[in-house]
Design a protein around this nucleic acid. Sequence first.
DNA 1: AATGAATGAGGATTCATTCAT
DNA 2: TATGAATGAATCCTCATTCAT
Lengths: 209, 209, 209, 209
Amino acid sequence: MPRAVRERQMLDAAVEVFARRGYSAASMDEIAELAGASKPLVYLYLNSKEELYGACIRRESRALLDAVQSAADPEDSADRRLWCGLRAFFAHTAAHPSAWAMLSCQARIHGEPFAQALAELRQEIVDFVAQLIAAAGRDQERAGAALDAEEVSGLAHALVGAAESLAGWANTRADAAPPAKETAATLMNVTWAGLENLLNGQRWAPVRP
Amino acid sequence: MPRAVRERQMLDAAVEVFARRGYSAASMDEIAELAGASKPLVYLYLNSKEELYGACIRRESRALLDAVQSAADPEDSADRRLWCGLRAFFAHTAAHPSAWAMLSCQARIHGEPFAQALAELRQEIVDFVAQLIAAAGRDQERAGAALDAEEVSGLAHALVGAAESLAGWANTRADAAPPAKETAATLMNVTWAGLENLLNGQRWAPVRP
Amino acid sequence: MPRAVRERQMLDAAVEVFARRGYSAASMDEIAELAGASKPLVYLYLNSKEELYGACIRRESRALLDAVQSAADPEDSADRRLWCGLRAFFAHTAAHPSAWAMLSCQARIHGEPFAQALAELRQEIVDFVAQLIAAAGRDQERAGAALDAEEVSGLAHALVGAAESLAGWANTRADAAPPAKETAATLMNVTWAGLENLLNGQRWAPVRP
Amino acid sequence: MPRAVRERQMLDAAVEVFARRGYSAASMDEIAELAGASKPLVYLYLNSKEELYGACIRRESRALLDAVQSAADPEDSADRRLWCGLRAFFAHTAAHPSAWAMLSCQARIHGEPFAQALAELRQEIVDFVAQLIAAAGRDQERAGAALDAEEVSGLAHALVGAAESLAGWANTRADAAPPAKETAATLMNVTWAGLENLLNGQRWAPVRP
DNA sequence: AATGAATGAGGATTCATTCAT
DNA sequence: TATGAATGAATCCTCATTCAT
């Protein structure tokens, strides 16, 4: 069996196992067995548990980022771009549940190796969303209402967190998961109006009872 | 040193270490050392790694839930209740970063023991938010616009995910973390307008370009 | 509670636990708990696991030896003395099953401490039986047929082994254990005729087919 | 070194150590060292202390049973069969003293794992002997004197116990152990006459002085 | 391209034992 | 007389990793 094929099988198996168990509880034995190869071969191709994990993360984050970024047509309006990106995001996470479980489950553990790689992926997504929000602000053509970078970043984090949460929620109901389109709509429903208001300078404020 | 005190020290240390490393990578040695006690004593009081983890999770989820639930005055309007709950949530997670790291980091790993307990905590929070949303719908007094349970659940998940993400984001900037009030405001800004629209029967829809 | 009483409770508990688990698998915790005392007290009175075990063995072997030896009236004929000794043996082992389990189960493990003490007890019993056999030989008043010491020792070992085995067998059928008298009769039935024959110079010999 | 060979070395070492120390006091470290292998290898091949013990017991009981059962020619008379079986038994236990020590030492400890397996081995031997006794009864062709099953079982237990005891006795005098043939003769001497008497309906009875 | 054989290092857990009171 | 608090030392077991073939 040619090396490239074997290597892909190994990564597939590793993603599966890392998703199921987490990094430290995953065992190279289980991975090798699931990959249908002997452990020395796994080591020959991928060197160590840490590198294997790194390779999994790189492969899966690239795939997810590609899916999201290529879904947003730069010609479109900001809300359409966001909407398309979200649809692509939910479609991808639903199509690759193990990959998403691996990426999302340990995104914030600091001790594990490659926590940084995971954090970077997350940052890239957040940045992408932040750009969309900023672009929407420019579409609005109201320089006065411009949000500061800090605030945009916060909004992007909120949006991404909501998306992650919805992706996980959708994946748990394996039987009757709502289609990506619907999940994306839910999220647009909750957030877009608020974003528009913000960009128009309207803020929610607590009403003294 | 009396047992109760020691036990609390141990739980504190364990929360710290579980947060730093995750369940499986955490070692009882490290926990015992951080607690300033010997390993056998940890076992004497808390029986096993699994039970220790369980005790940590129970203690910290209860504390977080209490903080959030007791912050919302049932006499208030729905948006005020949500606002107060969020403020309490962000204040608590900021005050107990390790606890929040422990609770949030592994919320979705399935293999670990107590994944279920974690999932239940999350569900309780989601339910709490879902109630608030439903209550807001009733405040609106428009029976016709009532959202179905499924949709409310989705919205709640989105909101909770956004909150979790913001809490993590706030905690990473230890130096200049925004105050809970501000973070809560950000989240209300993004979501409340959308929720109100929904409750009024207005939905966001993609505009064909 | 006076020391003597407590000490007896401890020995009782220890015999029970040593019988159930064997020396090394028995834990001082279990013994202390069963004795209804704290571990430090056990150590105060009995010093160490090894000494505790020694005390148990001494107490129980002395009791068993006393029972057997005091049952045989030196005025009686050899077979009566043997018969009475066996009855006493089976009665005692049936009345103190834990003690017998403790004494018999590990009689031959060499590594354990006090294996020697156990071996000595066994030797004392064997010697007692050997004396009876030798006495029976003298009763027979046939100097010519005298068995050599070696052979007598072998016979005694056989008899004692048979008795031990029967005692264990009787103890396993807790519900319907045969009375000591019957067990003793079984053993006399199998062995006495053979012994008499031997003392008369008749030996069993394989018959070429 | 091929796996089969290594595995045998491990079993040999384990039998040795279990015999010396008993199950719970035996340490996997000592076994591995005696086997000339590392501990992980022992675990790789034999899974756990418990399974290793089980494997030892199975191997050694099978060997002993085979030796005894194949020694008795079914064409022979009952006493010859018994005699041959005993000779084989004593020869085997003398040739494999560790195995016999392991099998006999803990035959009656209840808590240990595999106590049942040991008990079953013993029962198989007892049953084998019981069959011989019953067969001897049939040879006698005196239906009237037939012993009931219960009594036969008791006799078999006595005989087996005597044999075990003699085997242990023979093994302790490593220097000048009597040959198996002699030990077997001793046992036949003590027991066969009694058995024959019983089968002829004659019982020993205490004589009132 | 592929693997059976092998291990050093480390982790969870238990236990006999002691001290301060 | 009696004990709550505490631990050093072992023990079972697992895992990432390598070598010889």
